[in-house]
Amino acid sequence: MARDKSRVLLDVKDLRVSFDTYAGEVQAVRGVSFYVNKGEALAIVGESGCGKSVTAQSTMQLIPMPPGRIKDGSVMFNGKDLTKLTDRQMESVRGSEISMIFQDPMTSLNPTMKVGKQIMEGLIKHQRMSKSEAKKKAIEMLDVVGIPNPDKRVEQYPHEFSGGMRQRAMIAIALACNPKLLIADEPTTALDVTIQAQILDLMKGLQRDFDTSIILITHDLGVVADMAQRVVVMYAGKVIESGTLDEIFYDGQHPYTWGLLNSVPRLDTNAKEKLIPIEGTPPDLFSPPKGCPFAARCDYAMPICREEMPEETFLTEDHFVKCWLQHEMAPNIENPTKIKRGGK
Protein backbone atom coordinates (compact mmCIF):
# COMPACT_ATOMS: atom_id res chain seq x y z
CA MET A 1 0.00 0.00 0.00
CA ALA A 2 1.88 3.05 -1.25
CA ARG A 3 2.15 6.28 0.70
CA ASP A 4 -0.71 8.64 -0.11
CA LYS A 5 -0.67 11.87 1.91
CA SER A 6 -4.46 12.04 1.88
CA ARG A 7 -4.65 8.59 3.53
CA VAL A 8 -1.80 8.87 6.07
CA LEU A 9 -3.24 8.71 9.59
CA LEU A 10 -0.03 8.53 11.65
CA ASP A 11 3.34 9.84 10.50
CA VAL A 12 6.33 9.30 12.79
CA LYS A 13 9.51 11.13 11.77
CA ASP A 14 13.01 10.79 13.26
CA LEU A 15 11.70 9.77 16.70
CA ARG A 16 14.44 9.56 19.35
CA VAL A 17 13.69 8.31 22.86
CA SER A 18 16.17 7.82 25.71
CA PHE A 19 16.03 6.66 29.32
CA ASP A 20 18.31 8.25 31.92
CA THR A 21 19.59 5.64 34.39
CA TYR A 22 22.19 5.57 37.13
CA ALA A 23 24.56 3.93 34.64
CA GLY A 24 23.98 6.50 31.89
CA GLU A 25 21.70 7.20 28.93
CA VAL A 26 19.98 4.28 27.20
CA GLN A 27 19.25 5.28 23.59
CA ALA A 28 16.20 3.06 23.16
CA VAL A 29 14.81 4.60 19.95
CA ARG A 30 17.27 6.18 17.51
CA GLY A 31 15.70 8.09 14.65
CA VAL A 32 12.68 5.92 13.84
CA SER A 33 10.40 6.95 10.96
CA PHE A 34 7.29 5.18 9.61
CA TYR A 35 3.71 5.93 8.65
CA VAL A 36 0.33 4.22 8.87
CA ASN A 37 -2.44 4.68 6.31
CA LYS A 38 -6.13 4.80 7.20
CA GLY A 39 -7.56 1.29 7.42
CA GLU A 40 -4.12 -0.34 7.17
CA ALA A 41 -2.41 -2.92 9.39
CA LEU A 42 1.30 -2.21 9.88
CA ALA A 43 3.54 -4.71 11.70
CA ILE A 44 6.64 -3.63 13.63
CA VAL A 45 8.89 -6.68 14.10
CA GLY A 46 12.21 -7.46 15.73
CA GLU A 47 13.82 -9.18 18.69
CA SER A 48 13.00 -8.29 22.29
CA GLY A 49 14.72 -5.06 23.26
CA CYS A 50 14.88 -3.61 19.73
CA GLY A 51 12.65 -0.64 20.61
CA LYS A 52 9.25 -1.78 19.25
CA SER A 53 7.19 -1.24 22.39
CA VAL A 54 9.00 1.96 23.41
CA THR A 55 8.30 3.40 19.95
CA ALA A 56 4.59 2.58 20.21
CA GLN A 57 4.24 3.79 23.80
CA SER A 58 6.09 7.01 22.95
CA THR A 59 3.54 7.85 20.26
CA MET A 60 0.91 7.90 23.02
CA GLN A 61 3.23 9.49 25.62
CA LEU A 62 2.89 6.42 27.82
CA ILE A 63 6.56 6.08 28.74
CA PRO A 64 7.36 7.30 32.28
CA MET A 65 8.97 10.75 32.03
CA PRO A 66 11.42 10.78 33.80
CA PRO A 67 13.40 8.55 33.39
CA GLY A 68 12.22 8.46 29.76
CA ARG A 69 12.32 11.47 27.46
CA ILE A 70 11.49 12.15 23.84
CA LYS A 71 14.69 13.79 22.62
CA ASP A 72 13.64 14.62 19.08
CA GLY A 73 11.24 13.87 16.27
CA SER A 74 7.54 14.29 15.59
CA VAL A 75 4.45 12.09 15.80
CA MET A 76 1.84 13.59 13.50
CA PHE A 77 -1.68 12.21 14.02
CA ASN A 78 -4.56 13.77 12.12
CA GLY A 79 -2.56 16.98 11.70
CA LYS A 80 -1.50 17.21 15.38
CA ASP A 81 2.03 16.61 16.69
CA LEU A 82 1.38 14.38 19.71
CA THR A 83 4.84 15.07 21.15
CA LYS A 84 3.80 18.72 21.68
CA LEU A 85 0.56 17.99 23.54
CA THR A 86 0.21 18.37 27.30
CA ASP A 87 -0.84 15.43 29.50
CA ARG A 88 -4.37 16.86 29.66
CA GLN A 89 -4.55 17.20 25.87
CA MET A 90 -3.25 13.65 25.43
CA GLU A 91 -5.99 12.33 27.70
CA SER A 92 -8.54 13.40 25.10
CA VAL A 93 -6.63 11.47 22.40
CA ARG A 94 -5.96 8.24 24.31
CA GLY A 95 -8.93 5.91 24.27
CA SER A 96 -11.06 8.05 21.97
CA GLU A 97 -8.77 8.38 18.91
CA ILE A 98 -5.87 6.02 19.69
CA SER A 99 -6.18 2.88 21.84
CA MET A 100 -3.66 0.28 22.91
CA ILE A 101 -3.88 -3.42 23.69
CA PHE A 102 -1.06 -4.34 26.05
CA GLN A 103 0.92 -7.60 26.27
CA ASP A 104 -0.45 -8.90 29.55
CA PRO A 105 -4.15 -8.23 30.16
CA MET A 106 -3.93 -9.44 33.78
CA THR A 107 -1.57 -6.60 34.69
CA SER A 108 -3.31 -4.08 32.41
CA LEU A 109 -6.83 -4.64 33.73
CA ASN A 110 -7.70 -3.23 37.17
CA PRO A 111 -8.21 -6.32 39.39
CA THR A 112 -10.41 -4.38 41.86
CA MET A 113 -12.87 -3.11 39.24
CA LYS A 114 -15.56 -5.00 37.36
CA VAL A 115 -14.77 -5.50 33.68
CA GLY A 116 -17.94 -3.71 32.60
CA LYS A 117 -17.04 -0.64 34.64
CA GLN A 118 -13.58 -0.54 33.00
CA ILE A 119 -15.23 -0.45 29.56
CA MET A 120 -17.74 2.16 30.75
CA GLU A 121 -15.03 4.57 31.98
CA GLY A 122 -13.92 5.62 28.50
CA LEU A 123 -17.48 5.87 27.20
CA ILE A 124 -18.55 8.16 30.06
CA LYS A 125 -15.41 10.30 29.76
CA HIS A 126 -15.00 10.61 25.99
CA GLN A 127 -18.53 10.15 24.66
CA ARG A 128 -20.40 11.77 27.54
CA MET A 129 -22.71 8.76 27.95
CA SER A 130 -24.88 8.25 31.01
CA LYS A 131 -24.09 5.22 33.19
CA SER A 132 -27.04 3.26 31.82
CA GLU A 133 -26.05 4.03 28.21
CA ALA A 134 -22.44 3.14 28.92
CA LYS A 135 -23.41 -0.17 30.51
CA LYS A 136 -25.57 -1.06 27.52
CA LYS A 137 -22.67 -0.24 25.21
CA ALA A 138 -20.25 -2.27 27.42
CA ILE A 139 -22.50 -5.35 27.11
CA GLU A 140 -22.65 -4.77 23.36
CA MET A 141 -18.82 -4.54 23.13
CA LEU A 142 -18.33 -7.76 25.11
CA ASP A 143 -20.70 -9.42 22.66
CA VAL A 144 -18.81 -7.94 19.67
CA VAL A 145 -15.50 -9.46 20.90
CA GLY A 146 -17.11 -12.87 21.32
CA ILE A 147 -17.52 -13.16 25.09
CA PRO A 148 -20.54 -15.39 25.92
CA ASN A 149 -23.25 -14.20 28.32
CA PRO A 150 -22.06 -10.57 28.15
CA ASP A 151 -24.90 -9.31 30.36
CA LYS A 152 -23.52 -11.48 33.21
CA ARG A 153 -19.83 -11.07 32.39
CA VAL A 154 -20.14 -7.29 32.53
CA GLU A 155 -20.56 -7.64 36.31
CA GLN A 156 -17.53 -9.89 36.83
CA TYR A 157 -13.93 -9.13 37.80
CA PRO A 158 -10.83 -9.87 35.66
CA HIS A 159 -9.81 -12.88 37.78
CA GLU A 160 -13.11 -14.55 36.84
CA PHE A 161 -12.12 -14.47 33.14
CA SER A 162 -9.81 -16.90 31.35
CA GLY A 163 -6.65 -15.59 29.65
CA GLY A 164 -8.28 -15.45 26.25
CA MET A 165 -11.38 -13.73 27.63
CA ARG A 166 -9.24 -11.14 29.44
CA GLN A 167 -7.52 -10.34 26.16
CA ARG A 168 -10.93 -10.00 24.50
CA ALA A 169 -12.03 -7.71 27.32
CA MET A 170 -8.90 -5.57 26.71
CA ILE A 171 -9.86 -5.33 23.04
CA ALA A 172 -13.42 -4.35 24.04
CA ILE A 173 -12.03 -1.54 26.21
CA ALA A 174 -9.69 -0.41 23.42
CA LEU A 175 -12.45 -0.36 20.79
CA ALA A 176 -15.32 0.98 22.88
CA CYS A 177 -14.91 4.56 21.61
CA ASN A 178 -14.28 3.43 18.01
CA PRO A 179 -10.67 4.74 17.80
CA LYS A 180 -9.07 5.55 14.46
CA LEU A 181 -5.85 3.75 15.44
CA LEU A 182 -5.38 0.56 17.48
CA ILE A 183 -1.89 -0.31 18.75
CA ALA A 184 -1.63 -4.01 19.61
CA ASP A 185 1.54 -4.84 21.58
CA GLU A 186 2.11 -8.62 21.37
CA PRO A 187 -1.66 -9.23 21.65
CA THR A 188 -1.40 -13.04 21.40
CA THR A 189 1.84 -13.79 23.28
CA ALA A 190 0.37 -15.51 26.35
CA LEU A 191 -2.44 -17.32 24.53
CA ASP A 192 -2.64 -20.85 23.15
CA VAL A 193 -2.74 -21.24 19.37
CA THR A 194 -6.51 -21.71 19.03
CA ILE A 195 -7.23 -18.55 21.06
CA GLN A 196 -4.49 -16.73 19.10
CA ALA A 197 -6.30 -17.53 15.86
CA GLN A 198 -9.61 -16.29 17.29
CA ILE A 199 -8.07 -13.01 18.50
CA LEU A 200 -6.43 -12.39 15.11
CA ASP A 201 -9.70 -13.12 13.29
CA LEU A 202 -11.45 -10.71 15.65
CA MET A 203 -8.89 -7.95 14.94
CA LYS A 204 -9.13 -8.49 11.17
CA GLY A 205 -12.91 -8.27 11.39
CA LEU A 206 -12.74 -5.04 13.38
CA GLN A 207 -10.29 -3.57 10.86
CA ARG A 208 -12.64 -4.50 8.04
CA ASP A 209 -15.89 -3.41 9.71
CA PHE A 210 -14.72 -0.16 11.35
CA ASP A 211 -11.86 0.81 8.95
CA THR A 212 -9.57 0.88 11.99
CA SER A 213 -5.84 1.28 11.41
CA ILE A 214 -3.70 -1.19 13.35
CA ILE A 215 -0.08 -1.14 14.48
CA LEU A 216 0.85 -4.72 15.36
CA ILE A 217 3.98 -5.06 17.51
CA THR A 218 5.30 -8.61 17.53
CA HIS A 219 8.23 -10.96 17.04
CA ASP A 220 5.91 -13.65 15.67
CA LEU A 221 6.24 -13.61 11.87
CA GLY A 222 3.32 -16.04 11.54
CA VAL A 223 1.04 -13.41 13.08
CA VAL A 224 2.54 -10.79 10.75
CA ALA A 225 1.83 -12.91 7.66
CA ASP A 226 -1.79 -13.29 8.76
CA MET A 227 -2.49 -9.66 9.64
CA ALA A 228 -0.24 -7.04 8.07
CA GLN A 229 -0.15 -5.22 4.75
CA ARG A 230 3.23 -3.59 5.46
CA VAL A 231 6.16 -4.48 7.73
CA VAL A 232 8.75 -2.38 9.57
CA VAL A 233 11.84 -4.29 10.73
CA MET A 234 13.54 -2.78 13.78
CA TYR A 235 16.94 -3.55 15.28
CA ALA A 236 18.80 -1.77 18.10
CA GLY A 237 16.40 1.17 18.12
CA LYS A 238 16.48 1.74 14.35
CA VAL A 239 14.32 0.85 11.35
CA ILE A 240 16.65 -1.17 9.13
CA GLU A 241 14.14 -2.33 6.50
CA SER A 242 10.55 -1.57 5.57
CA GLY A 243 8.22 -2.68 2.80
CA THR A 244 5.02 -4.44 1.90
CA LEU A 245 4.39 -7.89 3.37
CA ASP A 246 5.45 -9.62 0.12
CA GLU A 247 8.56 -7.47 -0.25
CA ILE A 248 9.79 -8.32 3.24
CA PHE A 249 8.88 -12.02 3.19
CA TYR A 250 9.89 -12.86 -0.39
CA ASP A 251 12.43 -10.18 -1.24
CA GLY A 252 13.92 -9.05 2.07
CA GLN A 253 17.33 -7.46 1.58
CA HIS A 254 18.82 -6.98 5.06
CA PRO A 255 20.81 -9.86 6.63
CA TYR A 256 18.86 -9.33 9.88
CA THR A 257 15.57 -9.78 8.00
CA TRP A 258 17.01 -12.96 6.47
CA GLY A 259 17.93 -14.17 9.97
CA LEU A 260 14.40 -13.57 11.28
CA LEU A 261 12.85 -15.45 8.36
CA ASN A 262 15.29 -18.39 8.62
CA SER A 263 14.51 -18.82 12.32
CA VAL A 264 10.80 -19.45 11.64
CA PRO A 265 9.49 -23.02 11.18
CA ARG A 266 7.69 -23.70 7.90
CA LEU A 267 4.54 -25.75 7.40
CA ASP A 268 4.55 -25.77 3.58
CA THR A 269 7.33 -28.32 3.14
CA ASN A 270 8.01 -31.89 4.25
CA ALA A 271 11.75 -31.32 4.39
CA LYS A 272 13.28 -31.71 7.85
CA GLU A 273 15.10 -28.40 7.86
CA LYS A 274 16.84 -27.15 10.97
CA LEU A 275 15.97 -23.68 12.20
CA ILE A 276 18.90 -21.30 11.92
CA PRO A 277 19.20 -19.01 14.96
CA ILE A 278 20.84 -15.59 14.76
CA GLU A 279 24.09 -15.97 16.69
CA GLY A 280 25.16 -13.33 19.19
CA THR A 281 23.23 -10.65 21.06
CA PRO A 282 22.00 -7.14 20.23
CA PRO A 283 24.36 -4.24 20.97
CA ASP A 284 24.45 -2.29 24.22
CA LEU A 285 22.34 0.83 23.74
CA PHE A 286 24.26 2.67 26.48
CA SER A 287 26.92 3.13 23.80
CA PRO A 288 25.49 2.07 20.41
CA PRO A 289 27.95 1.19 17.63
CA LYS A 290 28.72 4.02 15.19
CA GLY A 291 28.24 1.77 12.15
CA CYS A 292 25.49 -0.72 11.32
CA PRO A 293 24.20 -2.09 14.65
CA PHE A 294 23.92 -5.60 13.17
CA ALA A 295 27.53 -5.73 11.91
CA ALA A 296 28.86 -7.77 14.86
CA ARG A 297 26.33 -10.57 14.17
CA CYS A 298 26.29 -10.37 10.37
CA ASP A 299 27.88 -13.09 8.21
CA TYR A 300 28.33 -10.58 5.38
CA ALA A 301 29.78 -7.64 7.33
CA MET A 302 32.49 -5.57 5.64
CA PRO A 303 34.91 -3.11 7.29
CA ILE A 304 32.73 -0.12 6.39
CA CYS A 305 29.74 -1.73 8.16
CA ARG A 306 31.48 -1.20 11.52
CA GLU A 307 32.52 2.36 10.71
CA GLU A 308 29.47 4.03 9.20
CA MET A 309 25.70 3.59 9.27
CA PRO A 310 24.37 2.98 5.73
CA GLU A 311 21.81 5.33 4.21
CA GLU A 312 18.35 4.23 3.05
CA THR A 313 18.31 2.50 -0.33
CA PHE A 314 14.86 2.53 -1.94
CA LEU A 315 14.21 -0.61 -4.00
CA THR A 316 10.58 0.28 -4.75
CA GLU A 317 8.29 3.13 -3.70
CA ASP A 318 7.50 1.25 -0.46
CA HIS A 319 10.56 -0.93 0.08
CA PHE A 320 13.76 0.48 1.57
CA VAL A 321 16.73 -1.07 3.37
CA LYS A 322 19.72 0.30 5.27
CA CYS A 323 22.56 -2.04 4.33
CA TRP A 324 26.00 -1.63 2.72
CA LEU A 325 25.31 -4.72 0.59
CA GLN A 326 23.20 -2.40 -1.59
CA HIS A 327 26.30 -0.39 -2.54
CA GLU A 328 27.49 -0.86 -6.11
CA MET A 329 30.93 -1.95 -4.87
CA ALA A 330 29.56 -4.56 -2.44
CA PRO A 331 29.64 -8.31 -3.28
CA ASN A 332 26.50 -9.77 -4.83
CA ILE A 333 24.89 -11.93 -2.12
CA GLU A 334 21.93 -14.17 -2.96
CA ASN A 335 18.98 -14.05 -0.59
CA PRO A 336 19.52 -17.14 1.63
CA THR A 337 16.00 -17.40 3.05
CA LYS A 338 13.98 -20.54 2.45
CA ILE A 339 10.75 -18.60 1.92
CA LYS A 340 10.07 -18.49 -1.81
CA ARG A 341 7.01 -17.37 -3.74
CA GLY A 342 4.53 -20.19 -4.18
CA GLY A 343 6.10 -22.01 -1.20
CA LYS A 344 8.90 -23.54 -3.34
Rank of each mutant, 00 (worst) to 15 (best):
P105Y: 10
P105K: 05
M113S: 01
S130M: 06
V115E: 02
S130E: 06
S96T: 07
S99N: 08
M100E: 04
Q103H: 11
M129W: 06
P111N: 07
I124W: 04
S130A: 09
N110F: 06
F102A: 13
M113Q: 07
S132Q: 14
N110M: 05
M113E: 02
I98A: 11
T112Y: 11
K125R: 15
K114A: 01
E121D: 15
T112S: 14
N110T: 02
S99K: 05
M113N: 01
K131S: 09
L109M: 11
M106W: 08
Q118H: 05
P105C: 12
L123I: 10
T107Y: 09
S132T: 10
S96M: 13
M120Q: 12
E97F: 15
M106P: 00
M120I: 02
K114V: 00
M113F: 04
I101L: 14
S130I: 03
Q127I: 03
S96F: 13
Q118P: 01
F102N: 07
G116C: 08
Q103F: 14
Q127R: 13
E97M: 15
D104F: 14
M120P: 00
S132P: 00
L109C: 05
G122P: 00
N110A: 08
S132D: 15
S130D: 07
G116Q: 04
L109E: 05
F102M: 11
M100K: 02
S130C: 05
T107F: 09
R128S: 07
S99F: 12
I101S: 04
I101H: 10
K131Q: 08
L109N: 02
R128V: 00
M129S: 00
R128A: 04
I124Y: 03
F102Q: 06
S130P: 01
G116H: 04
Q103W: 13
L123E: 02
M100Q: 07
Q118F: 06
K114H: 06
L109Y: 07
S96A: 15
T112F: 13
Q118S: 04
